[in-house]
């Protein structure tokens, strides 16, 4: 083990440690500088300690991502080199892995497929959820409660319980006239159709609709608004937070789907299933795997950075609200 450690302490690893040390020192320095007046030594020390702890943990959490990004810009022979290269200068980066992943690795078409399917699923879920939620929140009709329970009951059936029969269903639909070409095996329609409605989405939007003041509806009626105008001009705009949460939530789950695209698609592979292909490439092209992984993960990272607040709300909608 100690020999192993000594081996690891070769230049690459030493650079890495130096990098860590630099970051730690820098953030500690920043911390101390930030609370410059009045730096009671004990308090400053405690603050610095916290930064050190947070930084070390952040580096551990980020390590798998860091190493993937790093390997994506190394050449295969450098990736295999031991002791491993753990840091390089940005201008030494080799971007050929990305262009290979994009072209030969088909990542461009995987990403396109994922994007199309995700857009279909998200818009489908938004439309069906908003319509159903409107009925549940603002309309009276016999069996309303029963139908609502049916919606909730769908949340208790995991997709993993029904996927193989659904595969036969879309295969059968493929033989139907007119629509067959759009919902049969290996089509965008087949990838999206089982997910075009969700009980969760209808529930989430209904809750938001119910929280709108009743007076609003009456006022809108007085202004001559019918159901359609009330829905599109009042209810939906006022429920934007809930709808945005639902949109982000369904975007994430649609983009990340694995089981269904794996069994239903062959030519129209989504990027998640495409990764399975990339995983198996030869070692002399292994940088392509890393580049492909980065490309597959990038869209969600961008979304996370852009919409962190809404996403947090969407993900915790069930947890914190009673």
């Amino acid at each position: 083990m100690s020999a192993e450690l000594a081996g690891a302490l070769q230049p690459g690893f030493r650079n890495f440690l130096l990098g860590v040390a630099a970051v730690v020192t820098l953030s500690a320095a920043l911390a101390v500088a930030g609370r410059f007046v009045p730096p009671r030594p004990a308090a400053a020390f405690r603050t610095a300690n916290r930064y050190v702890l947070l930084t070390v943990l952040a580096l551990i959490v980020l390590f798998p991502i860091y190493i993937t990004v790093l390997n994506s810009v190394l050449q295969p022979n450098e990736i295999i080199r031991r002791p491993p290269t753990l840091a390089i200068w940005p201008w030494e980066a080799d971007w050929s892995g990305y262009s290979q992943a994009w072209d030969q690795g088909d990542v461009s078409s995987y990403l396109l497929n994922s994007a199309v399917v995700t857009v279909l699923i998200v818009s489908g879920q938004l439309v069906t959820s908003i319509l159903a939620a409107y009925a549940f929140a603002f309309l009276e009709f016999p069996l309303k409660r029963t139908i609502f329970v049916v919606f909730l009951a769908t949340m208790m059936v995991p997709f993993e319980v029904v996927f193989f029969t659904n595969l036969q269903t879309v295969a059968t639909m493929g033989d139907w006239p007119v629509v067959g070409d759009h919902v049969g095996l290996d089509t965008y329609g087949a990838l999206a159709i089982p997910f075009l409605a969700t009980g969760f989405g209808a529930f989430l939007v209904r809750q938001s609709f119910l929280s709108l003041p009743r007076d609003l509806r009456d006022a809108a009626a007085l202004d001559g608004y019918g159901h359609f105008r009330f829905l599109t001009r009042v209810a939906v705009p006022l429920s934007r937070p809930a709808i945005a949460s639902l949109a982000l939530f369904s975007f994430f789950s649609a983009w990340n789907q694995y089981l269904w695209p794996l069994v239903v698609s062959d030519d129209k592979r989504t990027v998640q299933v495409g990764l399975r292909q990339l995983r198996g490439v030869a070692l002399d092209q292994i940088n392509v795997t890393f580049a492909g992984t980065v490309l597959a993960a990038l869209p969600l990272f961008v979304l996370l950075l852009a919409f962190q607040k809404q996403l947090v709300r969407g993900l915790t909608a069930g947890a914190v609200k009673g």
Binding site: V61, L62, P64, T68, L304
Partner: peptide, 28 residues
């Protein structure tokens, strides 16, 4: 703490990795 938002973003970052992305990363 000053800059705590950066740490929060880092700690929540793996929410953006799908099962497939995480699996391929650990596979390598």
């Amino acid at each position: 703490l000053r800059g705590i938002a950066i740490y929060r973003t880092i700690f929540s970052s793996t929410v953006a990795t799908s099962v497939a992305v995480a699996s391929v990363i650990f596979f390598t």
